[in-house]
């Protein structure tokens, strides 16, 4: 049972991402800001059904993706979740956000990034790398 969380404030991007990703995951949740993302994440931990992947937009109202990522990593640290058990996080950003991406890597230990417009190939590549890819026939 693979679980996905898409965090994106903008509806078009959110739908697009969902569209691209949902066939790889049994459960697909969405959130519209960092605060909701952290809440959903916490909830998933309490249910003992943590997410396998979180796609996190960097620019969001309330709590941005960077802050949410750091918060999530903090929770993991507190609960002793580490190593490859840490949730895989892909940051989603507009092309210009190179600095933000670096911050996400270094401060938030994210696993990768997607730039808008999102290329399906790159997304698939990541999924394969994380072992979350499901071929169409399977």
């Amino acid at each position: 049972m693979k679980k996905l969380l898409i965090v994106e404030d903008e509806i078009v991007s959110r739908l697009l991402l969902t569209e691209m990703l949902q066939r790889h995951f049994e459960i697909c949740h969405t959130a519209v800001n960092g605060r909701e993302a952290v809440d959903s994440y916490l909830h998933s931990l309490e249910e003992h059904e943590p997410y396998d992947l979180i796609c996190l937009d960097i620019m969001m109202p309330e709590m941005d993706g960077q802050a949410a990522l750091e918060e999530i990593r903090k929770i993991e640290k507190e609960r002793g979740i580490g190593g490859n058990d840490m949730v895989k996080v892909l940051m989603v950003t507009a092309l210009s956000g190179a600095k933000d991406i670096m911050g996400a890597f270094m401060k938030g230990a994210c696993e990768g990034y997607l730039t808008k417009p999102i290329s399906p190939e790159k997304l698939e590549e990541y999924l394969k790398k994380f072992g979350l890819h499901k071929s169409i026939t399977g």
């Binding site: 640290k77 190593g83 994210c110 990768g112």
Partner: peptide, 17 residues
């Protein structure tokens, strides 16, 4: 384990960056 996790994160972050 916490120590190991912290070190893991270091290398993980660095790898990503």
């Amino acid at each position: 384990v916490d120590d190991l996790n912290a070190i893991f994160r270091l290398f993980h972050s660095m790898k990503g960056g």
